[in-house]
Design a protein around this nucleic acid. Structure first.
Length: 408
RNA sequence: CGGGGUGUGGCGCAGUUGGUAGCGCGCGUCGUUUGGGACGAUGAGGCCGCUGGUUCGAGUCCAGUCACCCCGACCA
């Protein structure tokens, strides 16, 4: 992609009102543009990241048994929420459509459960799970912190339906493992955290928390640092908690990047999502929800990998919008040589992952922009490097003839 | 929803006791530059968030309203 043709650009100055690290870096880098509080455009750079994250999620979730991707509606009838008794609870959060008994979906337990009931009637068909990646709408009382808490945001939500307690428990753990792989692949160290189920469920929920100063949640880490309890769940006299932390309490701020919880028959019962078992009895299926905030993940990765002072980000390779930033300095390079290197690079499998800065800008501007854009690999081509039949790759000179090997 | 703060060219900001608006960046043109956000010249661009009030006169004072930021509450 030629940078001169990329929509948007880095920004030198942004409002001093913006305090959130991810919002500052992503806005300056030309990744996002704010429309209103908690509502952002994903510019090409952030959009590419979102697509890469979505593909990683797909790869991992598609390994799960009986699991398919779908796309459910954003518009949801109030009636469905009234049926499960959640209309009153959701009322302040759901954006409603004027003069219609319809709102924009903040979550999809109702829709997913109803959808299930349209196709499943027998234990022989069980279990089954569906997931989607979609924009969610929640009227947050206070949207803030850039992509970390939006009123409109992209989410992956998965719903599973099971016949037995054993089966749902097994699937739940499989999802947990898939989530841990997903977070690792996008470069985050997520901590599996026990949390309160809130109004969602009588069960404890489990959150995936990433340690960060900017995190809204507070968690108590165990000694190994690989398990935690959310503060909201903690009663410091609880024997189970005391055993968990073994006397060492390490309280840390963290960002919740995913959460999973069982709700069993909470929605299947009122929505009549039941199947017949071997004896011919109709039994309500057991359900669970599993969510990952995709746009929040982008914000979280920026929080973890960004540096405000240096105005730069070092994205993990797996999610960087472009893996290679090819920067051309000067305009009087030997054109033959130049064509040769660009040609060589474009023969690589990752050619679509190259951002080529072909703009007529000063070296300083190009470097500053490159720092903000944060590609993991930087190739500089200039008359200085071409004199030696080389380019600069991440700070070191590499012969043109060796470049292909270095990049593959 | 409580408390505090902010709304002025595309972006970032200044604007004194009320007198019809200015700076930087960016943008256009010309020239010089080209390895860490280059320089000179010149030019374009603003119903001062919105509504009402006070006044001969309001960016400036008053009231209301909307939006945005921070702290808290909330967070399906």
């Amino acid at each position: 992609m030629k940078q001169s043709q990329l929509f948007g650009s880095t920004r030198r100055d942004i409002s001093k009102e913006e305090v959130s690290k991810n919002a500052i870096l992503l806005t300056r880098g030309g990744y996002i543009d704010k429309e209103m509080a908690g509502v952002y455009t994903l510019l090409p750079l952030a959009f590419r990241m979102a697509e890469k994250i979505k593909n990683i999620i797909r790869e991992e979730l598609n390994k799960l048994p009986h699991t398919s991707e779908v796309l459910m509606p954003v518009m949801q009838p109030h009636q469905l929420w009234e049926a499960t008794g959640r209309r009153e609870i959701i009322k302040d959060v759901m954006y409603d459509i004027k003069d219609e008994s319809v709102g924009l979906g903040p979550t999809h337990e109702e829709v997913a459960t109803e959808l299930f009931s349209h196709f499943y009637n027998s234990y022989k068909q069980m279990p089954v799970a569906i997931y989607q990646m979609q924009t969610k709408f929640r009227n947050e009382p206070r949207a803030k912190s850039g992509l970390l808490r939006g009123r409109e945001f992209m989410m992956k939500d998965l719903y599973s339906f099971h016949l037995t307690d054993e089966d749902i428990a097994d699937y739940y753990l499989q999802v947990k493992d898939a989530y841990m792989r997903i977070f690792a692949r996008v470069g985050l160290n997520a901590i599996y955290t026990d949390a309160s189920g809130g109004v969602f469920t009588k069960y404890r929920s489990h959150e995936f928390q990433v340690l960060a100063e900017s995190g809204e949640d507070e968690i108590y880490l165990n000694q190994l640092g690989d398990r935690a309890w959310n503060k909201e769940l903690v009663n410091e006299n609880d024997p189970e908690f005391l055993q968990f932390c073994e006397g060492v309490i390490d309280k840390r701020s963290a960002i919740e990047v995913g959460n999973i919880f069982r709700f069993d028959n909470k929605y299947s019962a009122p929505l009549n999502a039941a199947v017949t078992n071997k004896s011919g009895e109709r039994i309500d299926v057991l359900g669970a929800s599993y969510g990952i905030g995709i746009t929040r993940l982008i914000g979280t990765i920026a929080e973890v990998y960004g540096d405000i002072e240096k105005s730069k980000i070092n994205w993990p390779k797996s999610v960087a919008p472009y893996k290679i930033h090819l920067i051309e300095l000067g305009q009087d390079l030997g054109q033959d040589m130049y064509n040769e290197i660009v040609g060589a690079i474009h023969e690589l499998p990752a050619a679509s992952d190259i951002l080529y800065d072909d703009r007529d800008e000063s070296a300083g501007t190009k470097f500053a922009d490159a720092d903000l854009i944060g590609a993991p690999m930087r190739i500089i081509i200039s008359s200085r490097t071409l004199e030696r039949e080389s380019v600069e790759l991440n700070g070191g000179l590499v012969k043109l003839t060796d470049l292909k090997n270095k990049l593959t």
